[in-house]
Amino acid sequence: MTIQRFDAGPRMAEMTVHNGVAYLAGQIAEDASQDITGQTRQVLGAIDALLERAGSHKTKVLRAQIFLADLADFAAMNAVWEGWVVPGQTPARATVQAALAKPEWKIEIVITAAV
Rank of each mutant, 00 (worst) to 15 (best):
A13E: 03
Q42P: 04
F6P: 08
P91W: 06
G9C: 14
T37N: 03
R93C: 15
A92K: 06
M1V: 12
M77P: 03
G38W: 01
Q39G: 07
M12Y: 14
K60V: 13
A29F: 02
A75M: 02
Y23P: 02
D70L: 08
A22W: 02
K102S: 04
V110P: 00
P91M: 06
A114D: 13
T2P: 01
K58N: 10
G83Q: 12
F6C: 06
T40W: 00
F74G: 03
P91T: 08
T2M: 07
V96I: 14
I109W: 07
T90I: 09
Q34I: 09
D7S: 13
D35V: 06
G45Q: 11
S33G: 03
Q27G: 06
V96G: 02
L50E: 05
Q39L: 09
V115G: 03
K102M: 11
K102P: 02
A69T: 09
G26T: 01
D31N: 15
E108T: 04
L51I: 10
A101F: 04
A29E: 05
N19M: 13
Q27R: 15
V17Q: 07
L62I: 14
V17D: 11
L51N: 05
T16F: 04
E14S: 11
R93M: 15
D48N: 05
A72F: 00
E104A: 14
R93E: 15
D35G: 04
V43E: 04
G45L: 06
W105K: 01
T90S: 10
Q34K: 11
D35T: 05
A76Q: 15
P87E: 11
Q4A: 09
I66N: 12
Q97M: 15
A32Q: 10
Q97K: 10
Q34M: 12
D35A: 04
A64Q: 08
I47M: 05
V86F: 08
G26F: 09
L51S: 05
H57A: 15
I3Y: 00
Q97S: 13
T2V: 09
A75D: 12
W105L: 09
Q65Y: 07
H18F: 08
V21N: 00
A46Q: 13
Q42D: 12
D73P: 13
V21R: 01
L71T: 08
W84H: 07
A113Y: 03
Q65N: 09
Q4L: 07
K60S: 14
Q65F: 05
T37L: 02
A101V: 09
A69G: 08
W84R: 11
V61S: 00
D7T: 10
L50G: 02
A76G: 12
G38H: 04
F67C: 06
M12K: 15
D31A: 12
D73H: 05
A46P: 01
D35C: 01
R5F: 05
A113T: 04
W84S: 12
R11K: 13
A114S: 14
V115R: 10
D7P: 00
R63F: 14
I28R: 03
E108L: 04
L71H: 12
I47L: 06
R11N: 13
S56C: 06
D31W: 02
